[in-house]
Each structure stands twice: as C-alpha cells, then as structure tokens.
C-alpha cells in the first residue's frame, strides 16, 4: 500500500539557522505523530546531520517533512534534497569515520543508525536526495 501523506511541508536550507529550523519542523511532526521521546530525539538528530550535509556538501537545498502511514503504523518521513556534486563513492561515504569535509564522518552513517528507513539517491554532478523514515513503535 502506498504510504498516505499528510500535507508535506518544505523548508529551504541555505544557511546555518535553517538547520535549526529543520530540526524544529521535524520535532513538530514527530510530536504530532506521537513518537516516543527517544525516537523523537533520534529522528531530530538524524535530520540535523542530514540538513547540515545538504548545506555543507550539497551547497544548500531543501528539506521536506511529512507524516506517513503504511497501513499498520504511523511515522515521519524527512527528505533532504540538493543539487550539489553528488557522492561518487557511496560505500565510502556510508562508512564510519569517513568525511570529505571537516566533520567527524558520522553524518551519513550515524543518521542511518538513528532511523528505521534510509534511502540515498545520488548522482555525480546532479545532486543527492536522502530520505529517512522513523516509525512509531
């Protein structure tokens, strides 16, 4: 069954303060969906990492947040879109401790551990879309 979506909301990510705004938006959705406090925190933290990636590595872009339902349970889906250089080596990018920037290299791999679903769509020269979902327990 295709997930039901409830009015997705979008936020552009062009500066530092947008990362904070994305966190707050994701938090609102997570509370609305009644995720547990720990799950809320995990999702918001993942969103923070990914929004920063969009800003730093993708040269900015936007985030889209929405409530989803797969028929059995509710959840929150957040996706991060940029039109940056893309990721040439995925295995490397998803490995712990690898970073092309100044980070700790926990951004992608860490975010992946914090969520239930993690999809990465990237093309060199075209951009990257990372989509994560956290389901209600």
């Amino acid at each position: 069954m295709p997930p039901r979506s409830d009015g997705p909301e979008e936020l552009s990510i062009t500066g530092d303060d947008d990362v904070v705004r994305v966190r707050q938006l994701v938090r609102t959705y997570a509370q609305q969906t009644k995720l547990s406090l720990v799950d809320q925190t995990k999702l918001v933290t993942a969103a923070s990492e990914l929004a920063r990636n969009t800003l730093i590595y993708g040269g900015g872009g936007f985030a889209r947040v929405e409530e989803v339902n797969d028929g059995r349970r509710a959840g929150v889906r957040a996706s991060f879109h940029d039109e940056g250089p893309g990721i040439p080596d995925l295995t490397l990018a998803l490995a712990d401790g690898w970073s092309s920037g100044s980070g700790l290299g926990l951004g992608l791999s860490g975010a992946r551990r914090l969520v239930d679903q993690f999809d990465l769509d990237t093309e060199v020269g075209r951009g990257t879309v990372v989509t994560v979902v956290k389901w209600k327990r």
Partner: peptide, 14 residues
C-alpha cells in the same frame, strides 16, 4: 545530559 540525548549519542556512535 538528558537520557534521550545520551541514548541517541550512543546510537550515533559519538
């Protein structure tokens, strides 16, 4: 540090 934050940091691997 709040419990939820601590749990998340551990999961994050930090």
């Amino acid at each position: 540090m709040r419990p939820a934050v601590a749990i998340t940091l551990v999961e994050l691997g930090l």
